[in-house]
Design a binder for these strands. Structure first.
Lengths: 217, 217
DNA sequence: TAGATTGTTAATCGATTAACAATC
DNA sequence: TAGATTGTTAATCGATTAACAATC
């Protein structure tokens, strides 16, 4: 994936966490928060939090801290959550359905417009009010509906094919759940969710802990 | 999450990628690979690959490179993939079912023993041959079956409750898909998969790209 | 004004890359 | 032996933390 600005991905990947925790604070009617308090909640150091936020502007006030509502809003804008992104899901299996059913994404501006599948039994159905469409119509649909993001929830074997079709269109980003690294145009953003890599990290840590434990004895 | 050894998480999180790519090479009957070739495939630098591997031992041979089969095997062992982990899934919604149906995890040593749910209609059913059990029996089941890993696929509202129950047992790790940060005993490994954080990263990059584009004009 | 807390610079720490001697 | 490529040390780069002056 290309980088476009000077803000590091390490910082960017912390932004959604800030956003989420600020939401919690709003729910609890907390109006004001210092970097130190945020530190306690998020686990990041206060210094890091101030550094991170100052990549985007001075949202705080000396002697006071940050206004929770305002900061939440600003981070939302930085993340682009005030915009609408026409999105489609490809693959109506359990994973595709899970994402279709998780209305939070829709509420956050990712408009789930259709789900594509090869299975003729599913085509024509609706999942969480989102129509299931034949995958043969994918390319045309993307073009006609100005789809910007595609979510790949197909088996590994189909993922690259789907990416190839999508790459012929004007889509801008791929959210890929297939356990493979897609080859696409340089200008397309690819965000991978590789579940097995996440799970394997657990087994690594388990094994390591076991070994440490044995050594101590 | 605690760290236990000197190998950094940055390195650990690359190991599953090496493992996966080596599998591809084996499938293509390639027996031997240099760090330079691996660099081309994985996108990491050859230097980094050699550094990474040497955290665990000298698996290569000067002038030759690495034996693909052997390296794949060694990394598998490092990741603990030669062991069995009794695992349960909590939440038989789409996500829980997706994981239950993805037999790759089972093949990798994560023995999916049961799926827990509150819905009495689901209890007693089987998903990919894995029984659905009433969540009331969770604690007892964990104890009786020596469960080491639990996978939380419940809604956000239930996640901490489930974690609290599990924390009373001897489980060793939690794979958490609920969009919240769990509070658990220090000695339990928690690996989060926060989907919305991943998706929000996409919208950040989209927005940023848009801005860059506008600036150029 | 005094106290608190930010914004920002400088110091530290860690991870990545470069270079090359060792050796197959 | 000559060529290739590792293992490993040193250099560089980037990210995190510490410190403190600015200021609300």
């Amino acid at each position: 994936m290309e980088r476009f600005s000077s803000v590091s991905m390490a910082v960017v990947r912390r932004l959604p966490k800030y956003h989420r925790y600020l939401e919690e604070l709003i729910k609890n009617d907390i109006r004001r928060v210092s970097s130190q308090e945020l530190s306690k909640i998020t686990g990041f150091t206060a210094s890091q939090i101030r550094q991170d936020l100052n990549c985007f502007g001075g949202f705080g006030q000396q002697g006071y801290g940050y206004n929770v509502d305002e900061l939440h809003d600003e981070i939302g804008k930085i993340l682009g959550l005030n915009k609408l992104y026409n999105t489609v899901i490809i693959g109506a299996g359990n994973l595709g359905q899970a994402i279709a059913n998780y209305s939070f994404f829709d509420k956050s501006g990712f408009k789930m417009t259709a789900i594509f599948d090869v299975n003729p039994k599913l085509v024509g159905m609706k999942i969480n009010d989102i129509p299931v469409v034949d995958v043969d119509e994918l390319e045309q649909f993307i073009n006609e509906h100005n789809i910007e993001i595609i979510v790949i929830c197909t088996p590994k074997s189909q993922a690259q094919k789907v990416a190839d079709i999508a790459t012929r269109t004007n889509i801008k980003a791929i959210w890929n759940f297939a356990p493979t690294d897609l080859k696409v145009r340089e200008d397309i953003i690819v965000e991978n969710v590789h579940l097995s890599e996440s799970l394997f990290t657990i087994s690594y840590l388990l094994k390591e802990k076991e070994e440490q434990y044995r050594k101590k004895k």
